[in-house]
């Protein structure tokens, strides 16, 4: 763990360390794919912060104290307080849990749904057209509108936000997987396995699935960051997570009334949201370069 925070130059200072034949694997990774280390490192810091929120000097993020409203950042309230006197530092830290959970859970859900439908559509000819038409249909409804409609259908809760954004996001994954499957199917060894009489599920499991994983993981990082942004937009139009479970989006939309005179109410959650999305995107770019060596070459 500790090595990951070492700057890559360390290996270039041999006089301080005994010469090594093989570089430390973390250092090697950092040299080859700095994006993964930077993005992953930043994300790790945020995740640790979110998980350890309760030990980082926070108070109950939902405890309202109407007498201490709208305080500017100070020694007592590091990020100030909001219009109900809630401590923004605590809300931002606990908000990290919610926003990250939404992002990760949507990425996982959308990936599973997308893999399942995409693999079936790509592998079973008869189901290809119907599945893809349904995906077309879902994709043609703008994600935010779909999520707003789903939020109207279901009570405002974190689970429902996750479900709503997942349904909006997974068709893209499904299309990607289907495309990958179709191209992998053409490969001689897959063709060979089918001709040799291997059962289709086995072909998918052994040959197709492993080959789709790289692009799928990359895509799922983008879904993760898109989900966090979509959640913020949903909060803005009043269809986000419930107020008792504050996400960064909720905190921001609650603070927007006063932002011209109390910019701290939007500033802190916005910076954290942007940094997190940034970290996930950088990590995604790094992973893409790692999985697709051609893109990593200098042009």
């Amino acid at each position: 763990m500790a090595a990951s925070s070492l700057p890559p130059q360390v290996s270039a200072a041999p006089d301080l360390f005994p010469p090594v034949k093989r570089r430390h694997p973390w250092v090697a990774l950092a040299r080859r794919h700095p994006s993964i280390v930077i993005g992953g490192g930043l994300l790790l810091v945020i995740v640790v912060m979110a998980v350890a929120a309760q030990w980082l000097g926070t108070v109950d993020p939902n405890a309202i104290a109407p007498a201490k409203r709208n305080r500017a950042p100070s020694a007592e309230f590091w990020f100030g307080t909001d219009a109900l006197g809630r401590d923004l530092y605590s809300r931002v830290l606990y908000g990290a849990q919610v926003s990250l959970m939404v992002g990760v859970a949507v990425a996982v859900c959308a990936t599973i749904l997308g893999l399942a439908t995409g693999l079936v559509a790509g592998a079973v000819r008869a189901l290809d057209a119907p599945i893809m038409r349904i995906m077309d249909g879902l994709m043609s409804i703008p994600p935010i509108l779909l999520a707003v409609a789903l939020m109207a259908l279901m009570r405002g809760s974190v689970l429902n936000v996750i479900l709503a954004i997942s349904i909006a996001e997974f068709p893209r994954m499904s299309r990607l997987v289907r495309g990958l499957v179709l191209s992998i199917r053409e490969q001689p060894y897959v063709d060979g396995a089918i001709v040799a009489g291997t059962a289709l599920p086995m072909v998918i499991w052994r040959h197709i699935l492993p080959n789709t994983l790289g692009p799928v993981i990359v895509q799922s990082t983008y879904i993760c960051s898109a989900a966090m942004i979509t959640e913020a937009a949903l909060s803005f139009i009043g269809a986000g997570t419930p107020p008792s479970v504050p996400s960064w989006g909720t905190v921001m939309s609650e603070g927007r009334a006063l932002w011209q005179i109390k910019p701290h109410m939007i500033f802190f959650p916005a910076v954290f949201l942007s940094l997190t999305v940034l970290a996930v995107n950088i990590l995604g770019d790094g992973l893409r370069d790692a999985f697709d060596p051609r893109a990593g070459k200098r042009g």
Binding site: S225, I229, A233, F236, S253, S274, V277, L278, N281
Partner: peptide, 13 residues
């Protein structure tokens, strides 16, 4: 990456 990372309403305001 920044373009992706800042919510539209923050930029708008």
């Amino acid at each position: 990456v920044m373009g992706f990372s800042v919510p539209v309403f923050v930029i708008g305001y």
